[in-house]
Each structure stands twice: as C-alpha cells, then as structure tokens.
Design a protein around this nucleic acid. Structure first.
Lengths: 195, 195, 195, 195
DNA sequence: TATGAATGAGAGTTCATTCAT
DNA sequence: GATGAATGAACTCTCATTCAT
C-alpha cells in the first residue's frame, strides 16, 4: 500500500530528520513532520505504513546510502589498515556533514520504541559486517594479529567509533571529529602500551 | 519533600529495576512499579519527586555503588595496565551478576527522556574520570604511550566496553562476558597490528 | 451533477453489495468499492452525490425491483391469504437467491448513519403499503377478521418476516427459509392457540 | 482491571444512555459521556475496558434487569397465554417508561460495530429463551397448537414485538404502546383469519 | 505515613471527498 | 468522461501525578 518512493517520500524523510533533530524524538509528532514536509498529515500514510515506518525508512535510506558509499571507497583500497582508517574517516565526515542526521541516528532514534530499534539493529548489521570483513582481510594478509577474535575486535571498533560520535554531539559538535581519526586508528593498530 | 531514604525507598528502586527489565522501559508504568514494590502509587511520591527521579535515583544508587567498588579495588593495584584490566573485569562481572540491572542500564534507560539521560550522563562522569585517571597514571609511569590523548583514549575504552555489554545483552547473555576481558585488554594494550 | 445511470452506475452498486457483504459495512470504504467496480475513486462521484447516495441508491434499486416483482405477482392472485403467502415466499426466495444482498440489506445497512437509514425507511414504505393493501383486501373480503388494526397487523407481519430473515443470516443461511413459509402463514392466519 | 461496579459505574452507564439517545450513536464520544456523567474521560476507563465495553455493559445492565423482572412476574402466572400477554405488556411498558433507553437499545446500538452487536445478541438470547419456554409450556399444557415449531414461533413473536417498538420510536413515541398489547396478543393467539 | 481513586492533556491514524491532469 | 494523489478533521485511550481520607 505504502508507496515508499517519490519526491514526497524523500521530503517526508528529510522533514522527519529536521523535526527530530530540532525538537527531539519525543516532540516529533506526525503532524509536525507533515507540516515541515509541506504535506497533509494523511499524505504521510500514502508513503509510509505508520510513524515507525517513517523512522525506520529514515534510518534505512540514510544508513544505506552511507554504507554503500563506504563499501565503494573501501573497494579501491588494498590495505586493511587504510580501509579501517578510511571507514572511520568517512563515518566521522558524514556525521560532521549532516549534524541533524547525526543527532537523529546517534541520540534521538535510540529512544524510540522496541520495534524501531530492532529494525535499526538489523540495518546496522550490514555496517558491522563490513567492519568484520576488513578485520578478516587484515588477518589474512598478516597485517593484523592472527589471534584476533573478529567479533570482539569489531565490537570494540564500532563501540569506540560510536562513543566518539555520541560524545561529540553531546558537546554540541564543538570540535572536529575528523581530526580524531588518526589518534584512534593509531590506538587500534598499535594499542596504548608504550614500546 | 522526597524522603530519598528508607526501606521503601530501596524497595521502590529494586522494584523499578525488575519491572523495567521484565517489561521494558515503555511498559514500566508507575503503578506497575508500585505494585511490584508493594506500595501504593502515591507512596512513590513520598520518596521520589517524580518518575524521572525514580529512574535517576536507580542509576545513581546502583552505579554509585559500582563505582565505589571499582575505586576501592583499583586503589590496591599499582600497575595501570592491571587497573584497566580489573576495571573491565569488574564491569563485566557486575553486569553478569545482575542481569536485570544490566538490561535496565544498558538498554532500557537509554530510551528515557532527555532529562533522565542528562542526569545519567552526569553520574557516569565519575566512572569516566576514573578511567581517565588510570590512563593518566599509565602515561606518567611510562607504561602507556606518551602521545595519548586521555579523552580520546578513554572514549575508546568506554565505548568498547559499553558495546561489548550491549551486544552481550542483545544476544540474551548467552556467553560469558568475563571471558572476553583478556582479548579486550590485549587489544587495548598492544593494538591489532601484527609485529 | 450525479449521473445516476449507465454501465458504471450499476457496476458501482453491485460492487458495493459485494464489498459490504464480504467486508461488512464498517470496512466498506469508497476506495474498496471503487476497486471492486474497476473504476477510480473519483469516478464514483460522477455517478453518485456521495457515499450515502451509493448506499441509498443500492437499496432503492434492489428493493424497488423486488417490490415491483411482488406487486406483479400479487396482482394475479385473488385470495388475500394466498397473496400474503406469496409475498412471504417471494421475500424469502429473493433473500435466498441473493445472499450478498440479504446480508447487506438485513444486517449491514442497518449500521449506517441516520441519513441513510431514514432514506431506507422511506423506500420500505412502498413495501409496507403493499402489505397494508393485502390486509385491507382480506378484511373487505371477510377472509380476515374485521377487528384487525391494519397498521398493527402489518407491523407484526413485517417484523416477523424481518426477524426470520435476520436470524437465518446470523445462522449463516444454513437452513432453508422458504421451507418456513407455510408454518409462518399458518400462524398468522390461525394463531398459535389450539382449538 | 475494570471495576464494573459502584456509583460512578452506574453514573457512566446512565450518562451513556442519555448522550446516545440525545445525540445519536455516531455523536456519542467518550468525552461527551464523561462530561454528562460528571467524571473525567480517564475515569471511564477505571470502570470499563473501553468504549465498546460501556455500550455492552449498558445493554447488559438494562436488559438484564428487565429480563429478571419479566422472569419474576411470569413465574407467578400459570397460563402461558397470560404469560405471553404479560411479557409483551412489560416489554412495552418498560420501553414507554424509559424512552431514552428505548431509543438506545432499539435504534442507536444497532449501528454499533460488530463486536458490540455480537455481545448484544448474546445477552438477548436469555430473553429469547424465556419466550421459548413460554411457548413450550403452552404446547405442553395443550393451550397452544401442538404443531408449533418453537423457534419459528418465537422469532415471529420477537420480530413482531421488536418492530412494534421500533415503529413507535420512529413515530416519536406519539402513541401508547401498551394499548397495543391486546390486539397483538389476540392476533398471536387466534390469527388473523376470520372464523 | 500511606493510600488509590480520580484526573485530563495529548497524538497517531482513517477515509470521504476534491480537483488538476 | 475518468483518474487517483492529496487533503485534514476528528476521536479513543494512556498514565504521571494529586489529594482527600
């Protein structure tokens, strides 16, 4: 029934990003999103099943585009260490370039109801798998330690990236995220222990 | 007005943990918590300002106790590397020993409204500072690299720990968290790059 | 404005009967009727004033045809008792022959809003008058008691017929209605008292 | 959860009767009923599951009381013919004595959604069974014809009564219903055929 | 202290109808 | 004539908090 495509579909998703970023998840009523998208309340239901579907689609569209972009870039890089560096750089860069979206995906959407969060988790898996592949490649190429547990390593990397972004938003994006790529990558690659 | 102490105060907090863990944040109504605590709805308001205060107090009491425990243990350890190892071990151990609380603090309370999350962030600072102190000590003792940015390093460590626990809960606590301490510490100390 | 005639006019009415019978009055949206009739939603408004008009027209067309049929048949019967028998038989027969229509007129349309029900009442009057005429004729021919109140008698007869049909539908049309004509007529004519 | 008893329970039911009778089923919003009952909207949900439950309870309470009354009176009458007469008289009398209720049960509640109507049908069964028992008793006592089909006879009687009341309401209760008891009973007992 | 009945504000969703094409 | 995308008004129910007892 829901159309899930077209000019208004995108307008509604972008309106949702703006409204949620500015008013917070708990103040992002359907009517407010509709007004921001310059459509009638009911129009939203021509393009989405329900409000949850708007939020899930939002995450899916934006995260999907991001993951495709990262995959594309990674493909052209041979060294897994450089791939990891580039993944983190793109992650931070994309957050910096769309702060509204950063607020929505990092902070606000995490307050959503179980259904939405479950769907978001599913979508994220593609990203986590991408990190897994980089780690595995690094191990195969003997660039990374051969005693790594891929899952644990990936969780550490993702957790660290995620926390960096969340902290940055909580500090009102006052500093540069991308500037922190190098120290982070260095820590991941060499650890914190002095030689 | 709020008493903030006494037998029922604790009963209400523990009831809140159970109710939120079992029914989820969005189904943890004041009346349900009151019933679980075997008090009347109104009684909750003799001990707490409002529902948010219950949640914040919950986090404060439980996290406060945990932080005091960690500080106590750390004090008796001289090596910052061992301190870090012990902090992570205690973190994981305490989560494993109280899964209800783990679910509440890791998953459910993060869906709460901005006021609660801000307060939780404040309480967490004490924990983050503790990690900061370990890192600083490690740098001073020349055990850790001298080019570390304490804040960045701490965010990485905390983010990684946090993600490990969240993943573990999302997988229904099916594996041992404490078993993952060593690989994690190893990664932090030596990085993932092969020598 | 409304055309009230033509191929699509009939298609829409018949689609309405099917949709209402299958989905119930409360799930018979204009768009569903349009789809069933294979026309666009807006097309319905070229042939009918509004949704109520569809329902009223439906009843008018179908009930009108039925009344004309009964009048035609009755005309050829001289005995008012036989006329009554035939009226009931035709009523039951027509219901049995078009169960969708039976469901719609007996059950579903009675849930409609006041405007529609008023209009339906008006249309029904022609049928009630027909019964009145049979009773009056019977009294004039001294076949029926001369102390009958025509109105009361007619209401009893109509109410009884109506209830028989409703019951039959509520029991999923599992038994034969026409088989019940004789007992009913017998009861009307002779009463339930033993001699 | 729903209390289903007490002063306010009755106040809400009686308010529902008044609001539905005066404004019609489709204009009887919960908030209107609450205002009429002088309680808050939410209070209704302390005594009833939902709006449907209010309507079903209304019918159950009122019809239940009526059926009990009829059963009580019938018990003291030996002749099934007199029992039938008294049942109809009580039916008409109770309708005349509470016209609001008559409008609600005869007209408005029949527009309600399937769930409510099903529940109403269930409640009505007790009344229909009562009529069945009178007919059966009459047959056993050889006062009624021994070739009666109880079900058919009951449907005729109920259908006739029901139609009399509906007609009376549609004519704005302008005439006396109770005055029609005798002709109706006479018709049922002796039929309409002259001797 | 403790109770718990009562409060009432607030939002997602449906669907008959319109009108530009 | 025909289309179907767009409109927007309208309503039930939840639940944190209060306050008379």
């Amino acid at each position: 029934m829901a159309k899930r495509t077209g000019e208004k579909y995108e307008a509604i998703i972008n309106a949702a990003v703006r409204v949620i970023a500015e008013h917070g998840y708990h103040n992002a009523q359907v009517s407010k999103i509709a007004r921001e998208a310059k459509v009638a309340d009911g129009t939203i239901y021509l393009y989405f099943e329900n409000k949850d579907d708007v939020l899930i689609s939002l995450f899916n569209e934006k995260m999907g585009a991001f993951i495709r972009q990262v995959e594309e870039v990674i493909k052209g890089i041979s060294s897994p260490a450089d791939q990891l560096r580039e993944l983190i750089r793109l992650h931070f860069k994309s957050m910096e370039e769309n702060r509204h979206l950063a607020i929505v995906t990092q902070i606000e959407l995490r307050q959503s109801n179980p259904g939405v969060r479950r769907a978001i988790g599913e979508i994220l898996k593609k990203y986590l798998n991408l990190i897994d592949r980089i780690i595995s490649a690094g191990m195969e190429q003997r660039i990374f330690r051969n005693d790594l547990d891929v899952r644990i390593t990936r969780k550490m990397i993702f957790g660290a990236i995620d926390e960096m972004v969340t902290s940055w938003i909580m500090k009102d994006c006052k500093y540069s995220l991308v500037d922190q790529v190098e120290p982070i990558v260095s820590l991941f690659l060499h650890g914190i222990k002095s030689r």
